[in-house]
Design a binder for these strands. Structure first.
Length: 302
DNA sequence: AAGAGGTACAACCGCAGAATT
DNA sequence: AAATTCTGCGGTTGTACCTCT
């Protein structure tokens, strides 16, 4: 009669334990996890064994390499479609586990939250040695299982608060923020500005009464120089109905709409909307993500 | 060189649904 | 049909490593 371990071991797995687990899976397949402990093979719970197998020992896992730009794009797309169904999303990404996707997403989310919450440094020291404001740069991303060099685009994004400017680097184009303008009062508006990847721009900003400098909306002639016909689709900055301009006009033949949609992928932090219309845009942020923002009085209140 | 802060990742927990007894 | 066990999922936490100052 084989004994059952009385004390359950937790924490990191040793290579010996991995070996035992692998032997079990080879013999019985990836199931009967609880029997591993009941047979006295390992002092681990069935759950722990299963997790170890699924996340680390399963064959064909991509371990130790970062998400490629393409994987990142896919995750964003699928998260928008399915919400936080990490297991489902992971099935679309070969060699990635639900844990991988979940970790990727939450670190990405934390990064964004920190960007939005972080109080400015007093002397702008963080900017030392960093890319100049708004300068588009090409970042080399080490590819996975391949010799080819993948390029992803990143840009810097300035936010000013009480006169101090912070530069945030937005890594990879999929990181661009597509806010839902409807759920925000327009005066709480924080815009992520589209920047043409191939050119350098200075993003103009205006200072709100609460001290935030918000970037202005993209200028169609500057930011989308190839599509001057779209100029009249972009209303004056901070027009409360500006986003409706995209909806009211039939822009199906206009690439500009498509371009905006493609270039401003959702962060999908809430979930499910794929729309770039005003009814969906700010849904892409969790409700609490803007809590730090002071209410900016409307012009009539000032 | 050291400390602080940020990031990535492994692993745990609680819960829910499915399967089994 | 009810109770128990197993399995899978999503959220969260702990920590090692990295980068910056």
């Amino acid at each position: 009669m084989e004994r059952e371990f009385e004390n359950i071991k937790k924490g990191p797995w040793s290579s010996d334990e991995d070996e035992v687990l692998l032997r079990h899976v080879t013999k019985y397949g990836p199931r009967e996890w609880s029997s591993i402990r009941s047979k006295g093979l390992l002092p681990r719970t069935g759950k722990s064994c299963r997790l170890r197998w699924v996340n680390k020992l399963r064959p064909n896992l991509k371990t130790g390499c970062k998400f490629t730009a393409e994987e990142e794009r896919l995750v964003i797309e699928l998260q928008t479609q399915f919400g936080n169904k990490w297991a489902k999303i992971a099935t679309y990404l070969q060699g990635r586990t639900d844990n991988d996707v979940k970790n990727f997403w939450s670190s990405r989310r934390k990064k964004l939250e920190r960007m939005l919450h972080k109080p400015p440094s007093s002397k702008g020291q963080k900017n030392k040695g960093k890319t100049p404001l708004n300068q588009v740069q090409v970042e080399k991303v080490p590819p996975c299982n391949s010799n080819q060099v993948e390029e992803s685009l990143s840009f810097s994004y300035p936010i000013s608060y009480m006169g101090n400017t912070e530069v945030f680097e937005m890594i990879n184009l999929p990181d661009l923020i597509k806010p839902n303008y409807q759920q925000m009062e327009i005066n709480d508006y924080l815009s992520a500005v589209e920047v043409e990847a191939t050119t350098l721009h200075t993003v103009p900003s205006f200072e709100s009464s609460s001290g935030y400098n918000f970037p202005l909306l993209p200028d169609p002639l500057v930011d989308f120089p190839l599509f001057p016909e779209c100029k009249d689709l972009v209303p004056e900055p901070f027009d409360p109905n500006f986003i409706d301009g995209f909806e009211q006009k039939n822009c199906s033949e206009c690439v500009c709409n498509q371009k905006l949609e493609n270039r401003l992928p959702t962060l999908g932090l809430e979930g499910h909307s794929q729309s770039t219309s005003s009814s969906g845009l700010f849904n892409d942020f969790p409700n609490d993500i803007f809590e730090y923002l002071d209410h900016i009085p409307a012009s009539s209140e000032e």
